[in-house]
Design a protein around this nucleic acid. Structure first.
Ligand SMILES: [Mn+2]
Ligand SMILES: [Mn+2]
Ligand SMILES: [Zn+2]
Ligand SMILES: [Zn+2]
Lengths: 136, 136
DNA sequence: TCCGGATATTAGACAAAGTCCAGATCGACG
DNA sequence: CGTCGATCTGGACTTTGTCTAATATCCGGA
């Protein structure tokens, strides 16, 4: 599956997002790469040729994508949030030295023995992060 | 077990940390409460009566505690790091609305089916965070 | 006790991520 | 075209955390 700019409008609409030029560019940055990008990185990608999209719009748009369930947030680095175009259930491998973040398919991972939730609470998600370091 | 200021000096020494007045106060803030505190919260606790410890010292000290394995870092809120006096293996329950963070004993939790690590990598830790929300 | 070096603390400048707002711009529709 | 709600924007602002150079404290030896 190839994510072209033309695809993006439909993808956005299917998530109830009005496809503007900026939103298409930002979605394209995330989905064509299928990588975890910080707001700063999205900003850089979108403004490579010449400045096109403001910082405010990048942040507003990423938050909108998040609310609409188009992307997911990964909180793994204390200094910045990563945005993840992969919203299917999966976990993360984080290389602490390089900051490299990669996906772990959730299909074969089983988490069992969790205690029952406190009353009146519902699970919003389970984040599993494997922090690894280079041997030396 | 009661964590008094007097205990703190021994605890710090046992972790190869020179027990100064400020370090004792900061350790006491964390260990007497047995709660997850942000740097800001530590700062507030330590300086309740009158200003005693600078921001730089709070941050320096928490980083030192971290390096020496006296406390653990919990990265769960995109805006601030929490410091955890509980270093035994355990997981976390995060209430996203209130920001309340509580421990899940690791004893009965089993995580299986994780793929093998890439070569030359060693696990530094596995963080499991259950994000919950109030039903409404 | 006094001294000197090592260790620790400090104020405040600085940096980076993220938020906010009031005004400008866009674009769909008549 | 012209209107108007939706969107975008520069830039000020906030918050978390880092850095540095000066000061203070601690401690072992003379
Ligand atoms: Mn473009
Ligand atoms: Mn005190
Ligand atoms: Zn991912
Ligand atoms: Zn904990």
């Amino acid at each position: 599956m190839h994510y072209t700019r033309d695809n993006m409008a439909g993808l956005l609409r299917s998530h109830d997002i009005n496809p503007t030029h900026q939103r298409i560019e930002i979605a394209h940055a995330l989905f064509s790469r299928q990588e975890h990008l910080s707001a700063d990185q999205v900003m850089a990608v979108v403004n490579t040729r010449h400045s096109e999209t403001s910082k405010a719009t990048v942040y507003n748009t990423l938050k909108l994508f998040l609310e609409k369930g188009l992307v997911r947030e990964v909180i793994v680095d204390p200094s910045k949030v990563f945005f993840d175009p992969n919203t299917s259930p999966h976990h993360h491998l984080y290389e602490v030295d390089s900051g490299k973040l990669s996906d772990i398919d959730a299909e074969h991972v089983v988490i069992s023995g969790l205690p029952p939730l406190p009353a009146g609470m519902v699970t919003e998600g389970i984040d599993l992060i494997v922090r690894v370091r280079r041997t030396r």
